[in-house]
Design a protein around this nucleic acid. Structure first.
Lengths: 132, 132, 132, 132
DNA sequence: GTGGTCTAGACCACG
DNA sequence: GTGGTCTAGACCACA
């Protein structure tokens, strides 16, 4: 499910964290779903459980998952996700847009990319819409 | 000018690099301008010259600046910046947009932010237009 | 393994980088192989680890190696090496050939040298073929 | 005549030296010709005379020019050029060819490039053939 | 133990 | 004075 790439410089735990977050974003993991256990995911990816553990911890700090001691980790509902993350992403968006325009990309092109991402998201979102 | 934050995990040289890049993007440093020398900026920020040096090196790899041995470092013209950077930023934009929409931000809101960034950019661009 | 020459003007880290690249080119280090650690190579060559680190960094930028935090540095597969390097080498080849002919070396002699290098490469390639 | 590029990291004196050598190689400056004086070239390129001086010195070490005190610098005849330079270029050629083949360039392609360079050289060489 | 970052201080090449 | 290189030694993040 999650593809690790040892060649890009990013730490493994970040790749695991981003991979899990991506599964949430595209709807492959629905709110309330139980995430794979640390051990099973570690075995599946053939990496150290400590690395998985760290990925879960940071994901929990972002608010995407919550853990129930003794039961496991679960995907949070969107409403429960801390607004901090959204604010951070928005300010990153601003920086990104400014730099892209400096590099000659027009605002129209940027909007077009976002719109395309929106379509992609909507089509995938349909599957899990009932769970909301 | 550049704000350093020793508490967040990001390396100092990245903070310096991003700060300088931001100065270029908003037009505070115009293409062709001489950047502060390694030593002077190091003194100003109260950090080691090697750290500044590293920031300049990575910025040079991105194509934003170039350095002439014995003369100094200079801001590159936009056309000379490697297209690789633009591609990377665009794919980051896609990921960002997808996650923002998952967090409940509408495509309209995203487009609005980009537009606002565009206005900000244009108004600042006017000041420096005479230098071109 | 790698010969350092403190007398010629070339920086140490370039000599280390070129030496490692040579080991890759002749097949002494096979794709996927783990390179010596920064510290061990520094100890072996009796130079500062930072200098080795720099050699590895530049080699990574060329695409010849990649490093995994906490695990080590590894030789990349040939297909993954950025084409930029090849282009650069080809234009250097052109300049070299022109100057050699100015110095009285015939095109036939040049072709002969290249062919000899090809044979050398092939015979060495056989040894390591089993590792693929 | 000589194009300086402040953006590539190479020192100015190297660019001047290589530019002059190139003029010799393509035949724009014929053996026995007087090279421009240090002062005039410095004025023409708008750089420090010391920089030009250094370029001439290194070119003299390579054997491409010789200087007559009080008269100026002159282009050497090919036969007078020290064989050291040729040997150095040949060994560089070997390394270059090996690395190119490692990157997947066939010996045929390499030979083709050299042949093309040869044609280019011959056509330009006709102009100055009478001087030899 | 591995690579990555940072500091302090030094020396050299360049213009 | 400028950037570029090197050393020595330290600390941290990663697995």
């Amino acid at each position: 499910m999650i593809q690790l790439n040892y060649r890009d410089g990013r730490p493994i735990y970040e790749q695991v964290r981003d991979g899990l977050r991506q599964l949430l974003v595209v709807g492959a993991i629905q709110p309330g779903d139980k995430l794979p256990s640390v051990r099973s995911l570690a075995a599946q990816l053939a990496i150290n459980p400590n690395t998985i553990q760290r990925a879960y911890e940071t994901l929990e700090q972002e608010g995407y998952v919550y853990s129930v001691p003794g039961k496991g980790s679960f995907a949070a509902r969107r409403e429960e996700i801390d607004g901090t993350r959204r604010q951070e992403l928005l300010s990153r968006l601003d920086e990104l847009a400014e730099e892209l325009m400096y590099l000659g990309v027009t605002p129209e092109e940027i909007a077009r990319r976002c719109a395309r991402a929106a379509e992609k998201k909507q089509s995938k979102g349909k599957e899990g819409a009932a769970h909301d």
